[in-house]
Amino acid sequence: MRQHPHVKWNIKRGGRDAPTPTPSLTPLPNALFEDAAYPVKWNIKQGGHDVSAPTLSFPPLPSETITLGASAVSVSDPPQPHHGHGGIGMHVQLGMLFTMKSLFPGALLPEGTKLAHDIGAAPPLRFASRADADAVPFDYNDLDAILGRFGIRRGSKKAAQVAETLLTCGEVTAAASGGDSGEEPRTCATSHEAVISFAASALGTSAPRAATTVVHGGGGGRRRREEPRRYVVAPDGVDRIGSGGAVVPCHPMPYPYEVFYCHRPSDAVALRVELASVGEDGDAALGATAVAVCHMNTTMWDAHYFDMLNARRGEPICHYMPQSYVLWLAI
């Protein structure tokens, strides 16, 4: 098996962990925070009943055609399910979701699929320790104070992003405190320490390993790397990673500093997918080594996913994890 991509989450100098900058409380740039590539939850329950609506609220998708393997599916604005007092649109970035049966060498991703960081997004800073993060309010009831602390105008799109993250993480905290044994382990981690602690606990290991997507090509750091207009799955480009046990995907949430929604889904398989460029961009230097997670049992997922992918309820559905996402493995 080829070595899977990984990221070192702690850097030691002279035998000690290097300090991580504490987020500045000065006003932030005007750019929006980088949005999630897809909803963090595939189904939501209210009062013990499934509700066909994702947790996060975004504008509906524009009409577009998504190519899945050799087939094309026309996707237009989906019907708006109701949650609370308003409708919720399902936001999924182009090319992120696909059926497992459509993942094979030679399969084309939709033109315009982007796996790199969003160059227009405000880069988040990171709290190193849980104690430092816990000293900053992180509750929807403190929304006004949080917006003021980070110089975010109330009523702005950035304020809406912050509010959505706080509401989602409030649901996570409430579910965890309720002790529902049927719920998968999940958390909103507001620090480097909290992410690693959750991954270690959920995977039953003292040293979880992080795997991330790597985009090959020009650029560096948080600048958007050069990406081809279209990716294709390379020959012999699909490998399973990890020991076949549990995995912990961590999704970045739009917020002034780094917040991850981490969970341990049941019946999930982790893959490494080598992607090459096609067409005029067929340069060997361009492409990506992508991390993907396949959910093998989608029986309880929102109906919109099956409509979007022309799939049957219950069949395996996968998603790529863009560059800012982190997958944790037991080895």
Rank of each mutant, 00 (worst) to 15 (best):
M96I: 14
Y261T: 01
S102K: 04
Q3I: 02
E227N: 03
D144G: 11
P19H: 07
I66R: 10
F306G: 03
G87F: 00
P256V: 01
G218L: 13
S102D: 05
P27C: 02
W301N: 03
P79L: 10
V238W: 06
S197T: 02
I66H: 12
C318W: 05
P123D: 04
S74M: 14
L56M: 12
K157C: 13
H295Y: 12
T299V: 10
L115F: 08
V326W: 05
A276N: 12
E274S: 15
F127M: 01
C318I: 03
R222Y: 15
H251W: 07
K8R: 15
T22Q: 05
A200D: 06
W9V: 13
D134S: 15
N297E: 03
L68A: 14
H251P: 08
V7K: 07
A116G: 13
L32W: 10
P78K: 11
V162G: 11
L309R: 03
K41Y: 09
P123H: 00
R149I: 02
P54H: 07
C169R: 01
L329F: 07
P79D: 13
T20P: 01
V293G: 15
V75M: 10
I44Q: 03
C169H: 00
S24N: 08
L56V: 08
A135L: 04
R186V: 00
A174E: 07
P19S: 03
V291I: 04
L94K: 01
A330F: 09
T99Q: 02
H4D: 12
